[in-house]
Design a binder for these strands. Structure first.
Lengths: 340, 340
DNA sequence: TTGTATGCGTTATCAG
DNA sequence: CTGATAACGCATACAA
């Protein structure tokens, strides 16, 4: 078990000073060619690698960024992380992933521990609880400390920082329009509670699309699901009490579960009933029939978020005010909708 | 923008020495009650938090552990990470997630950068490429440096370290037995290339179960899929050329895709054809019909792996030889199989 | 061309 | 009870 070797040990072995070794390792022009070769050969032999912690302490930067997400068991977040990872690595940064589990407290703790030197900046998507409480003191704190923060997907207007979002209202509007163009008239909406900003925005798009098409809004066709456990029951209730020819789900799970129910009740899909889901994941791809979805381009979102944060990190130009970048969505037609 | 305050600044402001502040913060009995109160009040006011990097450098431990996985867009890995995160956080550790993207080089780079002081230990599931190359020098290196390594799921016999695995052969055996008991006779297997240890083991279990039941092995019923892109084609080919009454997929995707094909060809499920998949994810849960699966208990696996690593980290007792823990699997019956 | 000293933020040892 | 100093591993300004 040969422990890691340090500069100091190399210096002792080679009978030179620590700083000579340090300089030699970085090919400093101050050091003679001979010495450089000798030192580097020795270093290589003993597999010397500088200690990152020491470098972090000295340079006051860690080359780490933290991404805090509510849940990892979601295809969308998983795509975002992959995108973040890829871009961050390209630019020489490591990614530390923290899960808030939709809990405010966990989000705060995560941020506090990471903020104490572990990382150079944050990438954050707010937890449900935080969205509900509207308590953002922990965000303000890190921003005040001068630590860059980029929010993505689940953001808040109350915080000034860089943001990357999906144009949820527009995306939802487009999806509904798509259904209308394909001949649907009574479109049900399965959405989240309003405090989730994305749920609210997507509902907004639904309402606007109907309005613009001259279709009267029927509140009974809107189902709000707070917890996953309620989903089945609420969907069944919708089928029991209402008639409709299309369903728009604000995530793929909602749409797939509704589609399943329709299937069980003998509806022909998409002839008698069409379905569109939000966020393209494996569920949509492998459901039966396959589900038409709004693609959010999570991977690109992750890449852009990472880029945005690292740009902010590496430019002193603090003048430049905060940007909000909007990621375009697109609709991927599959079997659950009629062609237009 | 008030930057983070340090002990040194507190000392200066309060006109005491640095070491007094340090001791006061840790309620040392050496320090007078008055001073402790004064210091702590001031620290609280300025929201002092010790710098973790400095602590890491001093203590030679970071309280971070790294988990390196091949892919994050997999429900199983996602569950494992959640388990690791939970347990690690409970025990006071942060988790750094790195993705190898099934690439040997990326795996090596990830390990090398993390090993230089960033973390105290590794949790690792091997990439496909590493499994293929059988080049494990990077693992040996970190082990030699005295850094604990716990491998999970995709492991290698060539490396001595703690391991957590699924009893893949047994699990597969049980699944096939289940199919046989329910009346199936010609069971197709969709598996991965042999160099993936888990694919090999699961194939093994399939073979043994057939043998023990006195069913002759028909190589034509075994489909080996290397890349996801081949999946559709190979499944179709199977249906085109063979007759069978059940399919066992070594992951849920394989099973779901096969089930879909059966559905499209008009087979009644499970009456005419049964399906079991490995690894219980959302696909199985929301497929149509819902898929009977082998549950791998990924979350528990993650928890145990984290526990194992941290135990190793916190006990000096290096004597204790390496353990390999086997996680039990179970079968979750859903709609795609006949009751026994 | 090489070496010495200092500092990054903290704790621990030892002296006062 | 309080404070000075060394040490963790490294880089760098400055001295030789």
């Amino acid at each position: 078990m040969k422990k890691k070797i340090t500069i100091k040990e190399i210096a002792r072995e080679l009978d030179v000073s620590i700083s000579t070794v340090s300089k030699a390792m970085s090919n400093s022009s101050e050091i003679s060619k001979d010495t450089i070769e000798k030192v580097q050969a020795f270093a290589k032999l003993y597999n010397y690698k500088p200690n990152n912690i020491a470098l972090s302490l000295k340079n006051k930067k860690t080359k780490n960024i933290a991404v805090i997400i509510p849940e990892i068991v979601h295809h969308f977040f998983t795509l975002i992380i992959s995108g973040i990872e890829k871009k961050a690595n390209e630019l020489g940064y490591n990614v530390i992933v923290c899960l808030s589990n939709e809990s405010f407290d966990k989000e705060v703790i995560n941020m506090e521990t990471m903020a104490n030197g572990q990382i150079d900046g944050f990438l954050l998507s707010l937890s449900k609880e935080t969205l509900l409480k509207k308590d953002f003191h922990h965000l303000r704190e890190v921003i005040n400390q001068g630590m860059p923060l980029v929010m993505f997907d689940r953001t808040s207007d109350e915080i000034y920082c860089d943001k990357i979002i999906i144009d949820d209202a527009r995306a939802s509007y487009n999806a509904i329009q798509h259904l209308i163009y394909s001949g649907c008239q009574r479109i049900a909406l399965i959405t989240t509670a309003d405090y989730i900003s994305i749920g609210k925005l997507r509902t907004q798009g639904y309402v606007n699309a109907l309005y613009d098409a001259g279709i009267e809004l029927d509140e009974n066709l809107i189902v709000k699901v707070d917890k996953v456990e309620e989903l089945d029951e609420k969907v069944k209730h919708l089928f029991d009490t209402e008639k409709f020819d299309a369903v728009f789900g604000v995530n793929e799970l909602y749409a797939v579960v509704a589609m399943r129910e329709a299937h069980n009740r003998g509806f022909k899909i998409p002839q008698e009933m069409s379905f569109i889901g939000f966020s393209d994941g494996i569920l949509s791809k492998y459901s039966y029939p396959t589900l038409t979805t709004v693609i959010q381009h999570g991977f690109e979102m992750g890449e852009k978020a990472a880029k945005m944060l690292i740009d902010r990190l590496e430019t002193n130009d603090d003048e430049s005010s905060f940007k909000t970048e909007v990621i375009k969505t697109s609709i991927l037609e599959r079997e659950s909708t009629k062609p237009i």
